[in-house]
Design a protein around this nucleic acid. Structure first.
Lengths: 260, 260
DNA sequence: ACTTAGTGAATGGTACTACCAATCAAAGGG
DNA sequence: CCCTTTGATTGGTAGTACCATTCACTAAGT
């Protein structure tokens, strides 16, 4: 494209030229909703896309980068750009910034879990199939194997809750609180040393038992019991530190660790 | 920087050069958590930042674009780049893509509300101050004024629920379900014509009454009652359309409308 | 002295080019 | 038939040029 100099340059295009990147993101949103782009599908090369849309590769790449960070697409050098299938990690990046900017405390995160997870447990008790219960037992068994290895124990604990989310059948809550769990994860790893593994495992067993019986009310109560217990323990530990700032500091350290 | 040609070119930098944009995002995350960047603060100019970090403006702009779409920063031409304060809209863009990619149905969104909002109403009943109840009454009064104007009625309805979120005191749930509400919004606007405004207002009044009394259990029940009612009505309407695809089509249309 | 118009520097937005490194597929040789 | 090599393709980064907007400073006018 030529750069116009002089009076003609003032004649900007009829359609607003502003926020090209934002509009491109909207275009991709449409392409996905139209079904033109399907999960797993391959997008045209950046240079072709830029030509097609009549924009520069710079602007196009900005839009694609946003989609990539969101987890909507995956880009591989020498290969191409692909539309991801369901992306449970889309929200996590945004959530981290939200926690930082709003100064959301650990207590608030746990409170959110306390609001949602008991009800999810109740629904899991109703919807659980025999296979689901088997999955849950498997996860629990792995936790027992790892009860001496605290970092892996915490991982398994989160897996337990996420499995429960899946069984509950509501992906919206499942996705959202997977993110919350990721944020809580690091702090739990710190305090897990103080937690009695046997105690945690017992509380989990109670939840599983309630779900196996299909007793929604008991599952709800047991989950609340478990989370309140965890909140109390973690609060005691967190009290020794600067409560609110702790999570942000951890986020910082973690980011530096993995080279990001 | 000079482009090396020949044997020297193979000597890539010691630190991995990959994913510069991703690393930059991590850097900004650190700067925020360190307190170097504070909400409302102004960032250096793009050209300076690029020099400081030793990257090209192209790469830096990709990172900044991601942050801008997320709502972390605001960029104004001729002025500069500023770090936003708390950003309740950070998740909305991600959430829209998530709904599209995972094909999340309207029913699933409403189910998520049914899981969370009754409990939030219960907590609101406990925590509500006289001022909070006044706010809630104000919102309700505005709804009554607009009960003939359906689009505005739906807006006011969402404001009612969001006010309730605020009162409940948990920002995590508040933020997350504000996004859910935005997604549900358009479909509600379609079906609101079938909803009897008086009926909805009555259900709202019951919730307010329960909160004013400080009766958590009743607030929980009333909210569940309200949402189940709404779900039932909307399901009846949605049945006439292609249920799952409807929301995506609406999203598409809405995106085209505002020129994005 | 105060206001106002104007000028210029700084800033974000876009376009374009050049080059690199990784990948893949097709051609060629064993 | 299998392996290697080569070449084209693709995403990733750097760098430059130009535009439009904004802001602050200056100078003219009152």
């Amino acid at each position: 494209m030529l750069y116009l100099v002089g009076p003609m340059a003032a004649k900007s295009p009829v359609v607003s030229k502003d926020d090209v990147t934002g509009r491109l993101i909207g275009v991709f949103k449409n392409l996905i909703s139209e079904g033109t782009l399907t999960p797993g599908g391959r997008l045209p090369a950046e240079r072709d896309l830029a030509d097609t849309f009549g924009v520069s590769r710079s602007s196009l790449r900005q839009a694609l980068k946003v989609l990539e960070i969101m987890g909507v697409i995956s880009q591989r050098v020498g290969d191409g750009t692909y539309l991801n299938a369901g992306a449970p990690s889309i929200l996590s990046e945004s959530m981290e910034f939200l926690i930082l900017l709003d100064g959301i405390s650990f207590h608030e995160l746990m409170e959110a879990r306390l609001i949602v997870e008991p009800e999810l447990a109740a629904r899991a008790a109703i919807r659980a199939t025999p296979e689901d219960i088997l999955d849950l037992s498997d996860v629990h068994a792995r936790m027992e194997q790892r009860k001496s290895d605290t970092p892996r124990l915490v991982e398994a604990d989160l897996l337990f809750h996420q499995t429960l989310f899946r069984i509950s059948g509501n992906r919206v809550c499942s996705i959202m609180f997977t993110v919350v769990h990721q944020s809580v994860h690091q702090l739990m790893a710190l305090t897990a040393a103080l937690v009695d593994p046997e105690h945690t495992l017992m509380l989990h067993r109670r939840i599983i038992t309630a779900i196996r019986k299909g007793d929604a009310d008991e599952a709800r109560r047991r989950m609340a019991e478990h989370l309140q217990d965890a909140t109390g323990l973690l609060a005691k530990t967190a009290a020794k530190q600067t409560e609110t700032k702790l999570l942000t500091r951890l986020t910082k350290l973690a980011s530096q660790m993995d080279g990001r």
